[in-house]
């Protein structure tokens, strides 16, 4: 799978980083309900991909399946060519640690830790580098996001926009292949949304990392490389030109 190349919508030959094959997902409470139905698509290296759709269309549900945190689905998911469907939860945790960064609507920073220490957490779990190396890498990430001044402040003492940028730095610390976001700008004003958007674009286009972001923001989606639209758990549109 790793070597499999395909023509991406924005031109050039790119590697597939994530692909799904007929994802289906049921909820049983309160009644049996199909939230995802036969969802198949690919995401490419360095691609800024957005998921859109009406409320309740299954965007978050799909993202959590892709994230490896939700394992109760039908079909298969591949990350960097490796089938992750059916793996044990400890293996999935290690895969997430190394390959996937998360940004949510809420920042989920640990309030007792400084910004710098929050950013360091996934890298310290990965354990690939020494503490001091991780610290300087984390500092680099914060600097890139314009937060060098805030590095040593407790996470709880920052503004909402700053907190979201710290969360992005944390998501990027292990240089994951994929950055996933569930309405990452949902809580931000237009100015901060624009900052986050620019960061995502830079990450995708300059560092070649793939971004899969759920959004309600039409401008945000339009400016991304490609948009997948969901309706009632099915993909209704794979190409942004038709969006």
């Amino acid at each position: 799978m790793n070597t499999m190349m395909q023509k991406s919508p924005i031109g050039g030959k790119r590697a597939i980083v994530l692909s799904t094959n007929g994802i289906g997902k049921y909820f049983f409470d309160p009644v049996k309900f199909k939230a995802l139905d036969d969802v198949s698509f690919e995401a490419y290296e360095g691609e800024f991909l957005t998921l859109v759709g009406k409320s309740g269309s299954g965007k978050s549900t799909l993202l959590y399946c892709l994230s490896t945190m939700d394992t109760a689905y039908e079909g298969d998911i591949y990350i960097k060519g490796e089938k992750i469907t059916g793996k044990k939860s400890d293996e999935l945790a290690a895969i997430r640690n190394e390959n996937i960064g998360f940004v949510f609507q809420f920042h989920y920073l640990l309030p007792e830790f400084s910004c710098l220490k929050n950013v360091m957490i996934p890298a310290r779990k990965l354990g690939k580098y020494s503490y001091d190396e991780i610290e300087s890498r984390a500092y680099e990430k914060l600097k890139m996001l314009g937060l060098q001044e805030q590095a040593l402040k407790p996470a709880s003492k920052l503004s909402g926009g700053q907190q979201q940028r710290v969360a992005i730095a944390r998501a990027l610390i292990n240089n994951p292949a994929i950055l996933m976001g569930d309405e990452p700008t949902g809580n931000l004003d237009s100015k901060n949304s624009a900052i986050v958007f620019d960061i995502f674009k830079e990450i995708a286009h300059e560092f070649g990392q793939t971004i899969i972001a759920v959004t309600h923001d039409n401008d945000f989606a339009k400016a991304s490389d490609r948009t997948i639209e969901l309706a009632d758990g099915r993909i209704v549109n794979l190409d942004k030109s038709d969006f």
Partner: peptide, 16 residues
């Protein structure tokens, strides 16, 4: 519980 959730999301497993 939020901290636990984000730790698990970023790759901490049950035994951690």
């Amino acid at each position: 519980i939020n901290d636990i959730a984000i730790l698990k999301a970023t790759g901490f497993n049950g035994s951690d």
